[in-house]
C-alpha cells in the first residue's frame, strides 16, 4: 500500500516533470536549422551513438548583455510584485485571521473569488480601465481634474497593478495559514507584561509569521519571474523581460535551442531561492 501511494506521484513526476525537463535540456544543446521541427538533436545514431552538442545557446546568454538585462528586469519585476503582494497581503491576512470566525470564510472567499474568473478577462479589464478613453481617464476628465488623458496603460504602474492583482491570492493564503495558527496567548502574555501593541507586533506577531511571509514571497516571486502575458499587455515597451526574450527566440528568430537555453537558465535562477528557503526551514 505504501509503495502504491508513492507510485502515483513518482509516475507523475517522471512523466510530467523529469521527462519534459530532459527534452528542454536536450533542446538547449541542439543545433538550430530549417526544417520541421527546426532543430537537429544533439545526438544521432550512425552505426554508433554520435554526440554533437551545441553549446552556443548558453554562450550567447552570457555574451549578449540583452539576456542579462532581461534577467535583471525580470528579477526586479518579480521582486517588486512579491514585495507589494506581501505588503498588501499581510494586513489582509491578519485582518481575516483576527476576524470573527463566521466572517473568515466569506472574507477568504472574497480574496479567492476574482482568482476564479479567467486570467485574461481580468487583464483585459485593466486595459479597459486604464486606456486613454478608459474609465479612469473618463472619470478624471469628467471631474475636470485633467484635460488630456493620462498615459496610464503601457506603463510601470499598469504593469505592477496587473501583476499584484493577479498574484495577490498566492500571498494572502500562506500568510493567512500561518497567522491563523498563531498562538494568541503569546501576544496576550506580552501585553500583560507591559509591551505596547507595536512592540507585540514587532517582537511576537511578525517573527512568528515570518515562515508564512517567506513562503508567500516565493509563491509570488517564482511564477512572476517567468510572467509573459501581463508585461506584454499592460507594461511599457521598454519592459523586455525573460518571458519576452524567450518568446522572441522561439517565434521570431525561430531559434528553439536558444529559447530552451533561456528556459533552463530561468529554472536554474528560480531553484536558487527555493533551495535557500529549504535551508532556512531546515535550520528551524
Amino acid at each position: 500500500m505504501r509503495r502504491l501511494q508513492l507510485l502515483v506521484p513518482a509516475l507523475w513526476l517522471a512523466g510530467f516533470v523529469a521527462l519534459p525537463l530532459l527534452v528542454v535540456l536536450l533542446l538547449s544543446i541542439a543545433q538550430p536549422g530549417p526544417g520541421v521541427p527546426p532543430f537537429l538533436l544533439p545526438f544521432a545514431w550512425d552505426g554508433g551513438l554520435v554526440l554533437r552538442p551545441n553549446w552556443e545557446p548558453f554562450g550567447l546568454l552570457v555574451a549578449d548583455d540583452y539576456y542579462v538585462s532581461a534577467f535583471l528586469q525580470s528579477l526586479w519585476v518579480a521582486g517588486g510584485t512579491a514585495g507589494l503582494c506581501l505588503l498588501l497581503g499581510f494586513p489582509m491576512a491578519l485582518g481575516i485571521a483576527r476576524a470573527k470566525p463566521h466572517w473568515r470564510a466569506p472574507l477568504l472567499m472574497a480574496v479567492l473569488l476574482p482568482f476564479w474568473t479567467g486570467f485574461l478577462p481580468r487583464v483585459g479589464a485593466w486595459i479597459g480601465l486604464l486606456r486613454d478613453e478608459g474609465w479612469v481617464n473618463g472619470v478624471l476628465r469628467g471631474l475636470g481634474w485633467i484635460d488630456a488623458p493620462l498615459p496610464l496603460l503601457y506603463s510601470d504602474l499598469a504593469l505592477f497593478l496587473g501583476m499584484v492583482h493577479a498574484y495577490l491570492p498566492f500571498a494572502v493564503l500562506p500568510l493567512y495559514a500561518s497567522l491563523s495558527r498563531l498562538d494568541l496567548t503569546l501576544e496576550e502574555a506580552a501585553s500583560d507584561l507591559g509591551a505596547t501593541p507595536a512592540t507585540v507586533f514587532r517582537t511576537i506577531t511578525l517573527p512568528l509569521a515570518a515562515p508564512g511571509a517567506l513562503a508567500a514571497f516565493l509563491l509570488v516571486f517564482i511564477p512572476a519571474a517567468g510572467e509573459y502575458v501581463i508585461p506584454e499587455l499592460l507594461g511599457p515597451p521598454e519592459a523586455l523581460l525573460v518571458g519576452r526574450a524567450l518568446w522572441q527566440e522561439f517565434f521570431q528568430n525561430r531559434d528553439w535551442p536558444v529559447a530552451a537555453a533561456l528556459a533552463v537558465a530561468l529554472l536554474a535562477m528560480l531553484i536558487l531561492p527555493i533551495r535557500l528557503f529549504q535551508r532556512l526551514e531546515a535550520r528551524r
Binding site: L120, P121, R122, G124, A125, I127, G128, R131, E133, G134, W135, V229, E232, L233, F251, Q252
Partner: peptide, 19 residues
C-alpha cells in the same frame, strides 16, 4: 510580429469601452 494577440478574448471585458 502580427500579434493580434488575445484581442478576441478581450472583447467581453472591453465591451464597455470599445465598439
Amino acid at each position: 510580429m502580427l500579434r493580434r494577440m488575445l484581442a478576441a478574448t478581450f472583447c467581453a471585458a472591453l465591451a464597455v469601452t470599445t465598439l
